[in-house]
Design a binder for these strands. Structure first.
Lengths: 150, 150
DNA sequence: TTTTTCTGAAACCAAGTTAGTTACAGTATA
DNA sequence: TATACTGTAACTAACTTGGTTTCAGAAAAA
């Protein structure tokens, strides 16, 4: 199983936007700024922002002094929303070369495993939808505050 | 998120071995035979069998008229055992380029999301471990029987 | 003993995916 | 009009994957 980093980067982006939103709700952030925090190229960030925008998790403003703001209250964004926005394929979707239909097992295996795999995926998604962006952001802000207290 | 087909193929292999086991417990199956059912190359099958063998889900016999048998009772093999045997990385593990440590968010994001992601993964694994190879095999044997009744 | 039939493993390739990069058109502000 | 952004196309390098060929080793069969 190979995972893309898109999900992790998307969480990172949204946490950053949430922090900005808490401090100054109308402020927008440039892709270059975000790229600095994530440690990558602004275009990589803009690509992911495009996906988040489609899901209405962020809104972007073009033109000078434009940038991105969070699209809704961090309370109302779950990890599943983010996951759903950036990861197009399901966990178990595989480019599984169609099994041999002449073989009784090959002919029936796909439907036999579809149910259980879907349930497992459902369980994953349920767990993700229980965690809000707000919680994660608060968690990070606490970590930062604690370190400053040292 | 990109998935390999190894998990699906591994299930296919084990269902096949379970069917053989039910019919004739001491019979072993060649990788070529399995490859025919899966519709791929015997070497691909042997690669996956190697992983399943390490997990003691199958046992192989070398030499002429050798092959593979299931390693334990299908009742005692869960989808999680199979998943665990063939998929080395975790669902969310990403080659995430280390975020910028100079940024407070970058410095703290990894630990903040580790917990929730681990819980989600745990949920997935729990769901997988509730399904046995036996159930899937019986399901397939039923499907086959129903079709013959047409 | 020799032949045959298997597994195990190395080595290689083609295809696909991903992150990163450059470049540039379009847009809105100052 | 100059500036500072986004959006997007196009390209590349690195990596992963499944498929394939090849061969050494093992064990049964002849």
């Amino acid at each position: 199983m190979k995972s893309s980093s898109k999900f992790a980067v998307a969480i990172h982006i949204l946490v950053g936007l949430a922090v900005v939103y808490f401090r100054k709700p109308q402020q927008s952030v440039s892709s270059e700024n975000i790229a600095w925090s994530v440690n990558t190229n602004p275009v990589v960030i803009r690509r992911i922002l495009g996906l988040l925008k489609k899901a209405e998790l962020v809104k972007t403003i073009t033109g000078a002094s434009g940038g991105t703001q969070i699209g809704k209250n961090p309370e109302d964004i779950t990890l599943f929303d983010i996951y759903n926005a950036v990861e197009e394929r399901t966990v178990f979707h595989s480019p599984y070369r169609t099994p041999n239909a002449e073989c009784p097992i090959g002919a029936n295996i796909s439907t036999a495993i579809a149910g259980p795999l879907q349930k497992a995926e459902q369980a994953l998604e349920n767990a993700l939808s229980k965690v809000t962006l707000n919680e994660i952001t608060k968690n990070i802000l606490e970590q930062i505050a604690n370190k400053q207290g040292d």
